[in-house]
Design a protein around this nucleic acid. Structure first.
Ligand SMILES: [Zn+2]
Ligand SMILES: [Zn+2]
Ligand SMILES: [Zn+2]
Ligand SMILES: [Zn+2]
Lengths: 159, 159
DNA sequence: GGGTATTTGATACAAAGTATCATTAAGCGG
DNA sequence: CCGCTTAATGATACTTTGTATCAAATACCC
């Protein structure tokens, strides 16, 4: 029988890991087991995770993960642009469209925790403009909009 | 001789504390010594401070400040809208124009730490729009743009 | 498969933020 | 000005989040 790789279950995840590999090769960066595991875990979580939640999910598979190692992998993946950090919730999420380098905005539902990654031209342009107007050469833009998503508003009669 | 209040040194600070008092009365909230001290300290710092930096500045005057008490005062002042939290630097800063309720953007210089509070109509409108488009009823918007300010770019020959 | 620079493991620590409950004081009415 | 009531603080201990250091391991190139 064929060797039973644990992959190939979710094609989306497979594609993301392939993309990670190609990104690393292109930049001459090393792709390690941990880095793969961290991205993989974030992707299959399907939501934002704190570094320590992530750690808990990694431990069963890799007992020697530590906070430091998780943060290191996260930093690496963020530099590559395949993971983002949500400043307002101190958590991390896999990028939803890592094909292009991008400045994104996040919409966060405070009730169900859903996070939507948006790429709004208007906001991008307006922030760039503001930076120029005030003389700042911007290199990082955090836009995190918190509220209640449509689903959650519907499902709550009131209050 | 007249009683030697330690106030009246900086009219801007005085005005801010008066405003704080009025805000509290208007809302039936109590204005305590600590809350005054926290706002006062943030104002005279003239920059963003972490909660613990703030604590250090309060301790000489009020030896029984604790992390918990500082965070409580900060939460109170933020609810009133006279203090903002910078998510991307985990710090707090006095509002630069607390007259009106507002959604603001922050520009942060990563070299000198300067923070500028802006109120850009275009960004406000664009974020609101995005929220509507994606079905979110927004109640908090974090817009924090980091880069290098004009002064710092000028003063650095290169790198 | 071996060599080397990079990454990780292990440990310890620093920084940021919160829970709890007994005690204190702000603001109000008399 | 005094005492009452309720909200806020003090004290303590704890949780969560993030880093420093250096020896050991491993990804990648050949
Ligand atoms: Zn993205
Ligand atoms: Zn929701
Ligand atoms: Zn403000
Ligand atoms: Zn600067």
């Amino acid at each position: 029988m064929a060797k039973s790789h644990k992959t190939l279950r979710t094609p989306g995840l497979e594609r993301a890991l392939d993309r990670l590999e190609h990104l690393c090769r292109a930049r001459g960066q090393r792709l390690t087991r941990q880095r793969r595991a961290v991205l993989s875990s974030l992707l299959s979580a399907g939501r934002a995770l704190s570094a320590y939640e992530l750690l808990e999910r990694l431990r069963p598979e890799d007992a020697k993960s530590t906070p430091a190692s998780v943060y290191r992998s996260l930093d690496f993946l963020m530099a590559l642009g395949v993971v983002h950090r949500l400043e307002s919730t101190r958590s991390f999420i896999a990028c939803e469209h890592p094909e292009t380098p991008h400045w994104v905005q996040f919409l966060i539902c405070r009730r169900c925790g859903q996070v939507v990654e948006a790429e709004d031209e208007r906001i991008a342009a307006a922030t760039e403009r503001l930076g120029q107007r005030l003389g700042f050469a911007l290199d990082q833009r955090v836009v995190e909009l918190t509220g209640v998503c449509e689903g959650c508003r519907g499902s709550a009669a009131r209050h």
